[in-house]
Amino acid sequence: MLALEDAAVATSGDYRHWVELGGRRLSHTMDPARGGPLTGAPASVTVVARSCMAADAWATALMVRGGAEGPALARRMGLDVLLLERDSGGLSETPVGPLFEAPADLVQEA
């Protein structure tokens, strides 16, 4: 749960709009370098920013950059981001920024 004040949140992901073709999961988001759908992208990228327009733009851009390059870009830009990536155990989280990198003593288990 996020309590926001003077901020907005947006999430981009492939968990709602995707197609499986030849055993590969293809996102609805396009990779400009390939000229086709993203492959191997994070499951989702959530961004908190001052405006919804900025949050949405960054969420999509970081989705395209992927799990390897996205977190580094988010750190350079001072963004608050949560990336979810698929792995053999389900989903793993990569938090970036003070909003998502909460100290362990402040994190409450559900």
Rank of each mutant, 00 (worst) to 15 (best):
M1K: 15
L2Y: 03
L2D: 04
A3Y: 13
E5P: 02
D6P: 06
D6T: 11
D6S: 13
A8W: 06
A8I: 10
V9W: 01
S12F: 02
G13M: 04
G13W: 01
D14I: 03
D14V: 02
D14G: 13
D14H: 05
Y15A: 03
H17Y: 12
W18V: 06
L21P: 06
L21V: 13
G22V: 00
G22E: 05
G23I: 03
R25C: 01
R25T: 10
L26Q: 08
S27I: 05
S27N: 09
T29C: 09
T29D: 05
D31R: 04
D31S: 01
P32H: 09
R34E: 14
G36Y: 09
P37V: 01
L38Q: 13
T39Y: 07
G40W: 04
A41T: 02
A41M: 03
V45Q: 01
V45R: 03
V45I: 08
T46R: 00
V47G: 07
V48T: 07
A49G: 12
A49D: 15
R50T: 10
R50V: 09
C52I: 11
A54R: 14
A55F: 01
A55I: 07
A55Q: 06
W58N: 06
A59W: 03
A59N: 05
M63P: 03
M63A: 05
R65H: 12
G66V: 12
E69V: 12
G70C: 11
P71H: 10
A72T: 13
L73M: 13
R76E: 15
D80L: 06
V81Q: 07
L82H: 08
L84A: 15
L84S: 15
S88W: 04
S88I: 05
L91I: 10
L91N: 00
E93V: 01
T94E: 00
V96T: 14
G97H: 00
G97I: 03
P98Y: 01
L99K: 00
F100K: 03
F100N: 04
E101H: 07
E101C: 15
A102C: 13
P103F: 06
P103M: 07
A104P: 12
A104S: 12
D105W: 10
D105M: 04
L106M: 08
L106Q: 13
L106P: 00
Q108S: 14
E109A: 12
E109L: 12
